[in-house]
């Protein structure tokens, strides 16, 4: 008797949607590490150990300056953390990583050791999208990991619908695009057409290292090294892939539903 079984099951389990953002966020896995902190001041003279091990060339060191780590290019493999003697690069365990401006992802300079988190949309857009945001998802060379961890926000544990955010089946129904993948050349036309088909005003969210900067495929002639080569991006969410909590944090931050820097309850 599946009807009875399923009802009993549901009653027994109760509500399985997490309390966040009204309650505390779920913990990241202990080996995840979260966002990175880069203390360029700790770099020893002439050292470039982290630069040599980075698979995506996310770290640079201009002459006589401390290192700069581009969290947009970073795939969080932690090779640099292991290679760094003076502990200039350290995991913070913080799931919050989304930023509004590309340059805000570059860490290392004095005062810029940690991320400056995304500011909300301006008041006009917030009024339009704050309580109802419809997104069209475009995978443009994505490996199905960013896609999967975006999809998971729709499951009962996360229940994205409670924030008025929904993924829709047509660009005509959308307020913006959520893009994953490095933008393969073979998806360039399809991405442009989808963008053109979304009515203005519209926003773009780039999810994952690929969509921000090309990820593991950065520099390959077959890809365009990220979404902002094709369309203007309003929110960057780093990770490979970003944890679902990081994506959710970015979306809510953009809509002004989280206070900057703290965890004030979301107005319902």
């Amino acid at each position: 008797m599946f009807a009875l079984d399923t009802l009993t099951h549901r009653l027994k389990r109760g509500c399985e949607t997490m309390a966040y953002p009204d309650g505390p966020p779920p913990a990241l896995p202990d080996r995840h590490g979260g966002a990175l902190r880069v203390d360029g001041a700790r770099c020893t003279d002439g050292c470039g150990a982290c630069i040599e091990v980075c698979p995506t060339d996310a770290i640079t060191r201009p002459a006589n300056q401390p290192i700069a780590l581009d969290l947009g290019r970073c795939i969080f493999c932690h090779a640099c953390i292991s290679a760094c003697g003076p502990a200039a690069i350290t995991p913070t365990g913080d799931h919050r990583m989304a930023v509004r401006r590309r340059e805000d992802l570059v860490l290392g300079a004095a005062g810029g050791e940690q991320l400056r988190l995304a500011a909300a949309l301006d008041e006009k857009l917030r009024k339009l999208f704050g309580r109802s945001l419809r997104l069209r998802q475009v995978s443009a060379g994505g490996c199905n990991a960013c896609e999967a961890d975006t999809n998971v926000l729709g499951t009962i544990g996360w229940d994205l619908g409670r924030f008025g955010i929904q993924f829709v089946a047509s660009p005509r129904h959308a307020d913006g695009l959520l893009i994953t993948g490095p933008v393969s050349r073979n998806m360039e036309l399809a991405l442009r057409k989808t963008w053109d088909a979304v009515p203005a005003p519209k926003i773009v969210i780039a999810v994952g290292a690929c969509a921000i900067a090309g990820g593991p495929f950065v520099g390959r002639p077959e890809v365009r090294d990220g979404a902002d080569a094709i369309v203007p991006v309003d929110l960057y969410i780093p990770g490979c892939p970003p944890h679902p909590l990081t994506i959710l944090d970015g979306l809510l931050r953009l809509l002004g539903r989280l206070e900057t820097g703290d965890r004030a309850p979301t107005p319902r």
């Binding site: 998806m187 399809a190 495929f217």
Partner: peptide
């Protein structure tokens, strides 16, 4: 549509990015 050069890029390798490309 998803072609990223994941295989062609491996010639002459392994490179520094190879393992992360394989993982994706």
């Amino acid at each position: 549509y998803q072609h990223r050069g994941a295989e062609t890029g491996l010639a002459g390798g392994p490179h520094r990015a190879t393992l992360s490309q394989i993982e994706t």
